[in-house]
């Protein structure tokens, strides 16, 4: 096992960054997006996108897990016995997720509380496992690492995009729960029907004070619609993505 590891490091050579590597990073952002094209990782995209701030944390966590799971799997790819490769991949993913969880618990406990379940569920996020099987098992470590970063970013971009729409129209705020929380639209003072106005406490003035929050936006169903519209828009712009079968 040690021998194959050494061989791998030698074969990897320099960290070249040519056209192919760039493509590995940019492809998942658009034409091969994990959510809108590969349709992986939908569940967490529906669940965590009510607020922008947790979505950003989630995106960072997935980029980290995806990139390093790809890297380690690729490093070990010749040593991993084919019969148990899925289990080995799971061990790698699970340990990375545990690292994320421990670090978050020590540095930002409130976000950890907010995301606790979903961080654990990165283990079952199909994007990570999918990239390990489809890419890292057959490619060199550096390329695999970039592929992981690219797919993590592609996932994160959709996540944050959906969260932006949902938070602004569902709660009238932006980055709620983070130090830079701001109220964007909707009433700013406590009305008699206090539930209309979720962000009663901030000092920053808001636009469109007549706006009352759309409760549909905070439900997972809203993410379904938004992702659906994104897929529709993307496919009408890139007809080659349309599955003709």
């Amino acid at each position: 096992m040690a021998e194959t590891l050494v061989q791998d490091v030698e074969k990897k050579g320099t960290f070249e960054f040519g056209k192919k590597e760039r493509k590995l990073l940019t492809d998942p952002l658009n034409e091969n997006n994990p959510i809108t094209v590969q349709v992986l990782g939908i569940c967490s995209a529906l669940a965590v996108t009510t607020l922008v701030f947790p979505s950003v944390v989630m995106a960072i966590a997935v980029v980290f897990v995806c990139a390093f799971a790809n890297l380690f799997t690729s490093l070990l790819r010749n040593a991993i016995p084919k019969q148990v490769r899925m289990i080995v991949q799971l061990v790698i993913i699970a340990s990375l997720v545990t690292i994320v969880e421990l670090v978050l618990k020590a540095f930002n406990y409130e976000v950890y509380k907010q995301l606790s379940v979903f961080i654990g569920l990165i283990i079952t996020n199909c994007i990570v496992m999918g990239r390990l099987e489809a890419f890292a098992m057959a490619n060199k470590p550096w390329q695999s690492f970039l592929d992981g970063v690219g797919n993590g970013l592609g996932y994160g971009a959709i996540l944050i995009g959906v969260a932006l729409i949902r938070e602004i129209f569902g709660k009238g705020t932006l980055f709620a729960g983070s130090p830079i929380q701001m109220n964007l639209i909707g009433a700013n003072n406590v009305s008699t029907q206090y539930w209309i106005n979720t962000a009663a406490e901030s000092g920053i003035g808001t636009f469109f004070s007549w706006y009352s929050n759309n409760n549909l936006m905070v439900l997972p169903a809203a993410a379904m619609f938004i992702i659906g519209i994104m897929i529709w828009w993307q496919r009408s712009k890139y007809p080659q993505l349309v599955d003709v079968s």
């Binding site: 096992m1 148990v84 289990i87 061990v91 540095f107 406990y109």
Partner: peptide, 29 residues
């Protein structure tokens, strides 16, 4: 035999690493 060896080494390394990290972050957590 190789599979068993591989799995034992892998899980051993991972377990040690995670335990170490947990000990380091425990105070803050």
């Amino acid at each position: 035999a190789y599979i068993i060896k591989f799995i034992v080494i892998l899980t051993g390394t991972v377990a040690l690493g995670l335990t170490g990290l947990r000990e380091v972050t425990k105070g803050a957590a």
